[in-house]
Design a protein around this nucleic acid. Sequence first.
DNA 1: TCTATTTTTTCGAGCCTCGAAAAAATACTG
DNA 2: CAGTATTTTTTCGAGGCTCGAAAAAATAGA
Lengths: 415, 415
Amino acid sequence: MSVGIRHDDLRRRNRAMVISAVRRAGQPSRTEIAATTGLSHSTISAISADLIQEGILAESKASETVSLKRGRPQVGLSLNPQAAAVLAVVLSLNFLSVAVIDYAGQVVAEEQRRLDTLTMSRDALIGECVAIVRRRLEDPDLDVQSVARIALAIQGITDSHARAMLWSPITPQTNIAFADILEREFGIPAIMENDCNMMAVALRWRHPDRYRDDFIAILLSHGIGMGLVLKGELFTGTHSSGGEFGHMIHRPGGALCRCGRRGCVEAYAGNYAIWRNARLLSENAEPVADVSDAEMRALAARARETDGPEREAYRKAGEALGFGLGSLFALIDPAPVAMVGASAAAFDLIEPALREAIAQTAGGQHSGSISFDTEPNELPLIREGCAMRALSFVDQEIFAPSIQARAGSVGKNVA
Amino acid sequence: MSVGIRHDDLRRRNRAMVISAVRRAGQPSRTEIAATTGLSHSTISAISADLIQEGILAESKASETVSLKRGRPQVGLSLNPQAAAVLAVVLSLNFLSVAVIDYAGQVVAEEQRRLDTLTMSRDALIGECVAIVRRRLEDPDLDVQSVARIALAIQGITDSHARAMLWSPITPQTNIAFADILEREFGIPAIMENDCNMMAVALRWRHPDRYRDDFIAILLSHGIGMGLVLKGELFTGTHSSGGEFGHMIHRPGGALCRCGRRGCVEAYAGNYAIWRNARLLSENAEPVADVSDAEMRALAARARETDGPEREAYRKAGEALGFGLGSLFALIDPAPVAMVGASAAAFDLIEPALREAIAQTAGGQHSGSISFDTEPNELPLIREGCAMRALSFVDQEIFAPSIQARAGSVGKNVA
DNA sequence: TCTATTTTTTCGAGCCTCGAAAAAATACTG
DNA sequence: CAGTATTTTTTCGAGGCTCGAAAAAATAGA
C-alpha cells in the first residue's frame, strides 16, 4: 500500500517542483514559479536560494528583456548547464548514436556509428554500446564526475522497470540488461527505454500545447511502434514497455508478421508489408529484413503516379492502421496522433483509407476531429526524449533526493 | 501543471491514509497502522485520537481476540458505522436497485424495482431514479443528515468526470447528467459510474491478493463490458469511462453489432450474437433486444450435449474474446481476468477457443499463465463497487478535506 | 530627488512529524 | 499475589517546513 508522507518529503517534493518549473518555463522569475506551483513567495525564495547555492540553478544576470514595467525587475532563474550532464544513447537498426547533454538540455557532444545489428553477436552488440559510451566519457572536455545518468533507447520491447531489453527486431538477441551492464561498467545510473516512448516524451516537451495530457505517437517504419501518453503520464504495460500497437490483431489469421504471428497491424502497415503487397507477393511471404528508405520513397512515388499495386498496398496499410486506431480509441477514447518516421512522408497515401476505416469503428464518432501530424525524422525525437527522460531523473532523484545526503551530490562540484 | 504541497496537505493526506488503512484492514491496531503506512507511532496516535474524537473511527472495546501475547494488548480501530452513509444505485436493463450502506460498509436497507428501460421516456427514467432515492432517504430509520454520497452505476458509457451517462444500451436516451440531477434534487454529492468499472473496484476489495495492481474484469452479458485496473488505478478513457473492450474490432466489416457498427467483439460474444449464431441466422441479422437467462442456459446446455450450431456459436464467441484479449494484451501486457455475468456460467464452452485464439496473439507467449475466474452474478459486484467508491470518496474528500472546515462536517453529528 | 510599484527577502507564528521516554496494560514467575 | 518482563500507546520537546505580513530592494515615472 502507499506510504504516508513524512515531513522531509515535503521539502523534497517542493524542490523537485521548483526545478521542474524552471525546466519547463525556461527562465521564470520567482514570482512566476510561485504562481504556477501555488506555493508562497517565501517558500520559493527559500528553495531557490538553496538551489542556487548548490549550483543547480542560476540567476540570469542579463536583464535581456528590457523591463517595461515599473517596480523591481524580475530575475529569471535558469538551469545551470554545468550542474550535471547526461548521456542519451539510441540503438536502432544498424545504427548506434550517443549524445552528451548538459543540465540545461543542450547537446555538447555526439557520436554516431553504423553497425550490422542483425548479425552481431550478443557480446559484440553490448561491446559497441559500452565502447561508444566510454569514448564519450573519456572526452577531455567532459567532466566525468558530472555525468549523472545514461539513458539508452532501443527499438523493441523493454521491461517495465527500464532495466533491460526483452526483445527487439534489430537483433536476434533477447534479454539484454543494458541498464545493469552500463551501470556496472561506469558506475553511473542507467535506464533502458523503448524508442517510441521516448518519441512521445519528446513531443510532449516540444509541443506542450498540442501534446499534453493525452496523445499517441506512432512510428511508421520497418515495423510499427507506439508511444502513448495518457492523463499526462507515459503509458507502459504492466510488465514491459507495452503499447505494442503494431501487434494488435487486425485480421485474425491474416498476413504473416515479422513477429511470427498472423494478422498484426504491422503485417499490413510496416515497410516490409507495404513492400510485400506492392510486389503482389503472398501474405505468407517471409518478411524481408530491411527495405531502404530510397526504395520506400520510390514505392510511394509510384503509388502517387498510378493506381496500381503500390497504391493498393498503402491503402491496405491505412486500413490496418485505421482499424487498429479504432480499437485503440475504443479503449482510451480518441486523442491527437503524431505519425513519425520515414513512412510518415507517405502519409498522404495512407490517410484516406485510414480515416475510412476509423469511421467504421468506435472512434468513428469523432473521426472528423481526429488530427494527424507528421514528423518524418524519428531519430532526433528519440534522442531528445531520451535526454529529457534522463534529465528529469536528475531533477527528481539526484537534486531532490529523499535522504538529506545532499553533501557529495553531483551538484556540489560546481561553484 | 501539478501544484506544490502545502503544509496542511500533509495532515490531510496522512489522515486519509489512516482511514484507508482501517477500511482495508478491518480492525488494525495503531501499531499495525504505523507499520503499513510507514508513519511514526506518535503521528498515528495523534491522528487516530482526532478521528476518534470526531466520531469517524472507534475503538473496538471487546478484546474478542484473546490476546495470547504478553504486554499491553492492541486496541483495534474500526470505522464508526454511524459516521456517515452512502447510497449505491444500480441501473441496468429493466432493473433499478438502490442500497443504503453505512460507513463501515454494511447494507442497512435496500430496494429493487423492475422497469421497462428500453421504452421509457427520458423524464420517466430520471423520475424513477429520483423517486427510488427519495424513498430511501425518507426512511425514518435513516438519518438523512448522515448521507454523504450517492453513487449511481449504469451499464453504458459515462463521462470521465463521473457526472453523466453519455450512451447506454439500456435506453435510447443519451446524455443524462444523473450526477447533477441527483445532486440538485437532494443536495448530496453524487457520481455516475460505469457498471463494469464498479465490478473491477469490487473485485479489488473482495480479493486483494488476486486482483491488486493489474487485472481485467469482463462482463459477459447481453453486451460485453470491461473494467480495467492498471497500476492499482481504475483505468478510464480520456473523455469517457473508456475501456469499451466489446467494441474493439474483431473482424473488419464483420458481424453486425448492437452499436450499429460491424465486426466488434460484442457482435460475436454478446448474448444476442451467440443466440444469433446458434440459430444460424445471418451475421447481418438485426440484434435482438434481449435474450432471457433461461434461454441462454438452454443454449449452453444444448452446446454441451451435441456438437451443433450452439457449440459453434460459443466457439466463435471464445475466438472473438480471445483475439480481443490478445490485442488488449499487446497494449497492456497480460493480466488476470475475471469473467463476470450470466454467460460466465458457460465459460467452459468459451474457454478452449478463447485460449486457442490468445495463443495466436501477442499475449500468446504467456497464454498458459493467464488465469480466468468466473463470477456469474454481476449485480452484487456492481453494487459493492459502487458502495466502496462512494465510501472512499467520503474517506478522502469529507473526512480528510483540504480546507480545515472540519466543524460542520458530516462526522460531527455523532457522539 | 521623491514617489509609486513590483519583486524578493526576512522574520515570527503555527503546524506537523519524529524520536525518546513515560505511561498503560497485560502475561509470566516464583 | 506481588513483582517483573513485555508490548502498546501516549506524552513531550526538538526540529523543519510553509505561510502571511512586513521590510527591503530595485526600478520607472513625476
